[in-house]
C-alpha cells in the first residue's frame, strides 16, 4: 500500500507535476497560490529541473510556451487576475498546438476582487478564454488527492492532444490540507517528434500559429476543431453519487461539491432522495449524463461559487422541462452545506 501523507492542495499540484515529469515551472506570485510557486522554487532546482520566478504572468506563460515548444513538460500556476493576463499566451499555444499545464487557483473577481476562493473563472476556463476558436480540457479537482491526480492527468492529456490543459481549483481547495496517497512517478514520457530541439540531422521544424495566406488558416482551425470534438467524445469525467433513485440532483464541482456532499448526506438522513453529479472535467462538460438524468424527471440544484456560470452548461444539457435552481455565493465567500440543504428542503 502506498504511503499516506498530509499535504496542502497547492503543494499537491506541485508534487503531482513533479511526479508527471514536469521539467520546468515559470510563475509569478499571486495569492492564493504562492505556496505552489515557493514549493517549486525549492523542489525543481534540487532535481536539476528548471524553476524561474518571472517578471509577470505574461512572461510566465510565454516562458511556458518556449519551454513546451522544445518538448519539455512544463507548467505555470496563477490565480484569476494573473490567469486573465495569460490568455494571449494560452491562445498562442492552442493555435500552435503546444502542450502545457496551467493551474488556476481561483479567487474572486472581477478586478482585484478578493483573495477568497471563488469559481468565477468558469466561463473563461471552459470557453477557451482568450481570442480565437479554441478549447482547453479543464479539470476541476475537489480534494487534495485530486489536486495531485488531476495534475498528473493534465500533463498526460496535454501531450495526448498537444493542447494546453487547465487545472481549475478554487482558493479554498488550494489552501486546504488533507491526507492523500502518494502516487508513483511517471516512468516514461511520450516522444515529441514535433519539438524544436535543434535541427540536428533532420529538416528544420517550426512551431507557430500564423498563416500568411488567409486560405490556409481555416484548414488549421478545422484540425483543431476535430481535436476538440475528440475531447468531447473521449475525455468526459465525472463522479456520480446516489444518482440511481435521486429525485433531486445537485450539480457542483470543486469545494462547492464538497459542501454539496455534506448537504446530500444530511438530506438523505431526512429521507430526501438527493444525489450529486460532480463534473471532474468542466470542459468537456458531462452533458449526456445530465441529459439522461433529466429524461428520468430529476430536478436539479446547481451549487457554485459564482453568479451562475456553470448553470448555463446545466441548462444547455437539461433543457427547459426540468426545474433547475441555483444556489450560489460570490465575492470570495464559501458555499455552505446549509445553503444547499435549504434549497433541497424548499425543492422537495
Amino acid at each position: 500500500m502506498s504511503e499516506r501523507t498530509l499535504m496542502g492542495g497547492n503543494i499537491a499540484i506541485a508534487e503531482g507535476a513533479i511526479l508527471a515529469g514536469c521539467g520546468a515551472y515559470f510563475g509569478y506570485p499571486i495569492t492564493p497560490q504562492n505556496d505552489l510557486l515557493e514549493h517549486m522554487s525549492v523542489r525543481l532546482p534540487a532535481m536539476g529541473r528548471v524553476f524561474l520566478q518571472t517578471e509577470s504572468e505574461l512572461a510566465a506563460i510565454n516562458m511556458v510556451y518556449g519551454a513546451a515548444a522544445t518538448g519539455v513538460r512544463c507548467m505555470t500556476s496563477t490565480s484569476s487576475p494573473g490567469f486573465s493576463l495569460q490568455q494571449e499566451g494560452i491562445s498562442y499555444m492552442a493555435g500552435a498546438e503546444v502542450p502545457c499545464v496551467v493551474a488556476n487557483i481561483m479567487r474572486a473577481g472581477p478586478g482585484l476582487g478578493n483573495i477568497g476562493g471563488a469559481q468565477g473563472d468558469y466561463m473563461q476556463c471552459t470557453r477557451g478564454g482568450g481570442h480565437g476558436d479554441y478549447y482547453l480540457i479543464t479539470l476541476a479537482p475537489a480534494s487534495v488527492q485530486e489536486m495531485m491526480d488531476l495534475t498528473m492527468l493534465a500533463f498526460e492529456l496535454a501531450d495526448k492532444y498537444r493542447n494546453p490543459t487547465l487545472v481549475m481549483a478554487d482558493g479554498f481547495l488550494g489552501q486546504s490540507v488533507e491526507s492523500i496517497v502518494m502516487r508513483e512517478p511517471v516512468k516514461s514520457l511520450p516522444p515529441k517528434d514535433w519539438a524544436i530541439d535543434g535541427a540536428r540531422g533532420r529538416d528544420r521544424r517550426l512551431i507557430n500559429s500564423f498563416e500568411m495566406n488567409p486560405i490556409d488558416h481555416p484548414k488549421r482551425i478545422r484540425l483543431l476543431l476535430e481535436k476538440y470534438e475528440r475531447m468531447r467524445l473521449e475525455e468526459v469525467r465525472y463522479e456520480g453519487m446516489l444518482l440511481d433513485d435521486a429525485e433531486i440532483v445537485i450539480v457542483a464541482y470543486g469545494s462547492a461539491a464538497r459542501a454539496a456532499m455534506t448537504a446530500m448526506n444530511r438530506a438523505r438522513k431526512n429521507n430526501f432522495k438527493v444525489g450529486l453529479l460532480r463534473p471532474i472535467t468542466v470542459f468537456p462538460f458531462p452533458s449526456q449524463v445530465l441529459s439522461d438524468l433529466a429524461e428520468k424527471g430529476s430536478k436539479f440544484i446547481v451549487a457554485e461559487m459564482s453568479s451562475g456560470q456553470m448553470l448555463e452548461d446545466v441548462r444547455i444539457s437539461v433543457g427547459n422541462q426540468n426545474e433547475i435552481k441555483l444556489v450560489n455565493t460570490y465575492g470570495g465567500v464559501p458555499l455552505t452545506p446549509d445553503m444547499i440543504f435549504e434549497a433541497i428542503d424548499l425543492m422537495s
Binding site: 510565454n62 516562458m63 518556449g66 499566451g89 498562442y92 524544436i196 530541439d197 512551431i207 507557430n208
Partner: peptide
Amino acid sequence: DGTEAPHGRAPAV
C-alpha cells in the same frame, strides 16, 4: 528550428 512569440514576449520565449 523556429517558433513565434506573442507581441513583445520573444525574450521570455
